[in-house]
Design a protein around this nucleic acid. Structure first.
Length: 311
DNA sequence: AGTCAGGCAACGC
DNA sequence: GCGTTGCCTGAC
C-alpha cells in the first residue's frame, strides 16, 4: 500500500499500538477541496446505513464532518456542507470518491431497476443519498463476521475495540484513530484475545478466518478480482462462521459486487410485508436477483434503510 | 431484570 | 431438505 503513513502530508502521525502518543500540532490549515459527484449523496446517511461502522464525527477548523481510516491508511477527513458539496483534503479526493462510490452513475443504476416497483421508488425517495461503499475486503469481511446477532451499536463497539487493541494508531485533530488490523495480526493474536474484545462465540469465527486468509488458504484478492459473484460467495462460505448473509455483505460492501443481495431479518420483513414474498433463504435470494436485476445490491441498501426506519 | 438482536453450525427428523 | 436449538454479549 503506497503512502500508508502520513498521507495528510505531515498532519497526522502513525504509531504502533504500543508506542506513546505523539504530541500533535496542525502543521498547516487543512486544504479542503470539493470532491465532485454526480447525483444524490448523503455522507451522513451512507455512514449510518449499516454497511460501515467505524467513522467518527469530528469538527476541524469549523467544519463538521467525519474522520476514519480506509484500510491501513488514514485517517481521512470529510465534510458535507449545507449546499450538498462534499469537501476533503485535496490529495484525498480520488480515494474518497472511490471509497464512497461517488464515481458511479446513479442514473444508470436506477435505470436498471424494475420501473413499476412502487415500494422501491418509495425507498429511494426516502433515502436518495445512500451509496454503496467500497471498503477493503478483509476489514469488511472481518467486521461482518462479528455482526451476527448484534445491533449496530455493538458491531461498532467491537470494531473499535479490535482496532484499538490490534490496529495502527494515528493521531488526527487531537484524537486517536485506528486502522483495522491485517489478518496476520489477528491470527497471531489468538482466539482468546479476540474473545476478550467481547466477541463471544464470534471470536472463533474471526480467528479462523484470519488464519485462513493469513495463510493464503483463502485468497481474498482472487475472490475479489477473478471469481464470479456466485463463485466468490461459494468460496467465502467455506469459512467457518460465514454464511450467505455475511458473504453477500462482504461482496457488496467490500468488493463492489452490486449483484450480491444480503438478506437479513429486515430484508425478510420488507420482502414479506411489502412484496408478499414468503420464500426463504436461497429461493428468496434468487427471486430478489431476478426481480431487482444486476444492481439488486443497491436496491437492497435503499430497502434495508427504508425498512429499518419505517417498519 | 429480562429480552432479544442486521447468523451460523450442528443437529434432529 | 427442512425446522430447531445453542451460542456470547450488552443495549434497550
Amino acid at each position: 500500500m503506497a503512502h500508508s503513513v502520513g498521507h495528510l502530508s505531515g498532519v497526522n502521525k502513525a504509531q504502533n499500538q504500543h508506542g506513546s502518543l505523539p504530541s500533535h500540532e496542525w502543521d498547516e490549515k487543512p486544504r479542503l477541496v470539493k470532491a465532485p459527484y454526480d447525483g444524490a449523496f448523503s455522507l451522513h446517511d451512507t455512514l449510518r446505513s449499516g454497511q460501515i461502522f467505524h467513522w467518527d464525527e469530528v469538527t476541524v477548523d469549523g467544519f463538521n464532518g467525519y474522520a476514519g481510516c480506509m484500510g491501513e491508511r488514514g485517517p481521512f477527513f470529510l465534510a458535507q456542507t449545507d449546499d450538498g458539496m462534499l469537501h476533503t483534503l485535496m490529495d484525498d479526493a480520488p480515494d474518497v470518491q472511490r471509497y464512497f462510490g461517488l464515481d458511479v452513475s446513479l442514473r444508470e443504476i436506477h435505470a436498471s431497476f424494475p420501473q413499476n416497483d412502487t415500494v422501491l421508488s418509495e425507498a429511494i425517495l426516502f433515502c436518495p443519498g445512500i451509496r454503496i461503499t467500497r471498503q477493503p475486503m478483509w476489514e469488511c469481511l472481518a467486521t461482518f463476521i462479528t455482526s451476527s446477532m448484534k445491533q449496530v451499536a455493538h458491531i461498532r463497539s467491537m470494531s473499535l475495540t479490535i482496532r484499538e487493541r490490534f490496529g495502527t494508531r494515528y493521531e488526527f485533530a487531537g484524537r486517536s484513530f485506528y486502522s483495522y488490523p491485517p489478518a496476520q495480526v489477528l491470527a497471531d493474536a489468538g482466539e482468546e484475545a479476540l474473545r476478550a474484545c467481547s466477541l463471544g462465540y464470534r471470536a472463533k469465527s474471526l480467528h479462523r478466518a484470519a488464519c485462513e486468509v493469513a495463510s493464503g488458504k483463502i485468497d481474498l484478492s482472487v475472490i475479489e478480482n477473478e471469481l464470479s459473484t456466485d463463485e466468490a460467495r461459494a468460496e467465502l462460505t467455506k469459512l467457518y462462521g460465514v454464511g450467505d448473509k455475511i458473504a453477500n455483505c462482504a461482496l457488496l460492501f467490500g468488493a463492489g459486487r452490486w449483484d450480491a443481495f444480503p438478506i437479513d431479518v429486515w430484508m425478510e420483513r420488507i420482502l414479506r410485508d411489502r412484496y408478499r414474498k414468503r420464500l426463504k433463504g436461497p429461493k428468496l435470494q434468487a427471486w430478489a436477483i431476478r426481480h431487482f436485476g444486476p444492481c439488486c445490491g443497491y436496491a437492497q441498501q435503499y430497502l434495508f434503510h427504508f425498512a429499518r426506519k419505517t417498519l
